[in-house]
């Protein structure tokens, strides 16, 4: 098996081996694009909060892009992508039928069991993992309230990609929903006392949600993003400071307890 012989090993046995997926659909929502990929092995195993490493198609890019699972629909996974640079721009240019390689699911999950009421707080592209989470929470019988913050009108069009019953939106320029940040929304919400908070977004937003949750006496989870190279826990490129010391977003995370991040 490990003697270097050409036979006797099966790639199917490997952990998170590369899956050759096919684009099933691409929808554009302002600054964001929803990429749906047929990837049965990943779809079967994925749970909310996890991510995949996506190879930028067409060559020229060494590193894969870590992208949160936005939704899982039967044998397909959906990803929400914001074109920020040449790699993500190429990903958002994919069309139905195109080939795309990806590996996963990777990383830690949002705990959902025993949750009766959930508050989902997202900022910008950080909203991405919250759709999958919302569906899982609803399935588990939880009441879900969401508050999303976006820069402007174009970014806020991403809200159209989400299917949630109670979704509140704020924009910094006031063009959609409330003018301000997600924190301005939170202040006006009437939530049950045992509500669990789930946050994903820029560091400043996570810090604000952390302060707000502490003051409101609510516990919760934060999904963090970081510049990542390996996605396997090997390179220590994506470490963040936590109450437990430096931890890897790709391995111990991306989901951490809300009160242990940004110590």
């Amino acid at each position: 098996m490990n003697d270097g012989s050409p036979e006797g090993h099966t790639h199917a046995e490997l952990w998170a081996e590369t899956v050759h997926g096919r684009v099933a659909g691409m929808r554009h929502f302002g600054a964001f694009s929803e990429l749906e990929i047929v990837a049965p092995r990943i779809a079967a195993k994925a749970v909310p909060g996890q991510f995949v490493m996506v190879t930028v198609p067409g060559g020229g890019f060494l590193l894969r892009r870590p992208l949160s699972l936005f939704a899982v629909r039967s044998d397909r996974v959906a990803l929400l992508i914001e074109a920020r640079g040449p790699g993500s721009e190429r990903l958002t240019g994919l069309e139905t039928g195109d080939a795309v390689d990806l590996a996963g699911p990777l990383g830690s999950a949002f705990p959902v069991s025993g949750v009766a009421s959930a508050l989902l707080v997202g900022g910008g592209i950080g909203c991405a993992p919250l759709q999958f989470l919302s569906e899982e929470l609803v399935r588990a019988g939880a009441q879900v309230t969401a508050a999303f913050g976006f820069r402007d009108f174009r970014a806020a069009r991403a809200a159209g990609a989400f299917a949630m019953e109670r979704l509140w939106v704020a924009t910094e320029d006031g063009s959609v929903g409330r003018r301000g940040t997600v924190i301005d929304i939170l202040a006006g919400l009437d939530l049950p006392p045992q509500t669990v908070v789930y946050a994903c977004g820029p560091t400043a937003m996570i810090a604000a949600v952390q302060r707000w949750s502490l003051a409101a006496g609510l516990r919760g989870y934060a999904s963090l993003e970081a510049h990542m190279a390996c996605g396997s826990g090997s390179c220590h490129g994506c470490v963040v400071d936590t109450a437990r010391g430096k931890l890897r977003v790709c391995s111990e995370g991306p989901v951490f307890a809300l009160d242990e991040v940004l110590p």
Binding site: L62, L63, G87, H227, H236, G237, C238, V239, V240, K246
Partner: peptide
């Protein structure tokens, strides 16, 4: 060793630069 501050990795043409700091 706790290593270097983030960001520690970035992609460059046909390569990448890392500064992990021997964590």
């Amino acid at each position: 060793r706790t290593g270097n501050p983030a960001p520690r990795v970035t992609e460059t043409p046909a390569g990448m630069i890392n500064a992990i700091g021997l964590e």
